[in-house]
């Protein structure tokens, strides 16, 4: 099952979003991944770039880059006919373009490794990896070994699953 929402965060809506968020937190955990960029756009990245969560966690992608738009798009045939890099039991998602301060939410239930990318910034290796659950979970599916559809830069940018599992959060190294 997948649940996605896309929102714009407005001044008046922040409080409401915070309240809603706290209610959601009671039901299931929420983790935030920010889309960030340097002031002149020389560098762009997800923060964190690697994240370990438990099944059922809602991931909130929010654009904190004031000068650019970003997406969080899974590698999947349903998204621009890409090779699948998420568990077969998971549904693909595509946030569409998020302008500054807009956010998108998706709830991940299938255990395994999810690789995603920013549509306009894949060439700059703006990618991220989420690990849901652990290898011992029923239905776990590890990272894709298919390297035919991604560049070497993308593969190098993706944190190792073991590192994400051991550290929980992996941030981009400058």
């Amino acid at each position: 099952m997948i649940c996605t929402r896309r929102h714009a965060v407005w001044l008046g809506g922040c409080a409401a979003a915070a309240v809603a968020g706290s209610r959601i937190a009671l039901a299931h955990p929420v983790a935030t991944i920010e889309m960030r960029g340097s002031p002149r756009g020389e560098r762009i990245w997800y923060d964190p770039i690697g994240l370990a969560v438990s099944p059922g966690t809602t991931i909130r992608f929010i654009n904190r880059d004031p000068g650019n738009s970003h997406t969080a798009t899974t590698f999947h045939p349903a998204n621009y006919d890409r090779r699948r890099r998420i568990p077969s039991a998971a549904e693909p998602w595509d946030s569409d373009f998020l302008l500054p301060d807009e956010y998108f939410e998706v709830t991940l239930t299938a255990p395994g490794v999810y690789d995603y990318y920013c549509l306009p910034h894949e060439m700059a290796a703006m990618v991220g990896r989420i690990v849901v659950g652990t290898p011992g979970d029923s239905g776990w599916e590890g990272s894709s070994h298919d390297e035919s559809d991604v560049s070497e830069d993308v593969l190098a940018a993706l944190p190792l699953v073991q590192k994400i599992l051991s550290e929980g959060i992996v941030r981009r190294e400058d």
């Binding site: 002149r40 373009f97 910034h121």
Partner: peptide, 16 residues
């Protein structure tokens, strides 16, 4: 003159 990693419209890494 500076480097930009890309954005909608000019996706490729480019110079501004």
């Amino acid at each position: 003159i500076y480097y930009n990693a890309g954005h909608p419209g000019v996706d490729k890494p480019h110079a501004h």
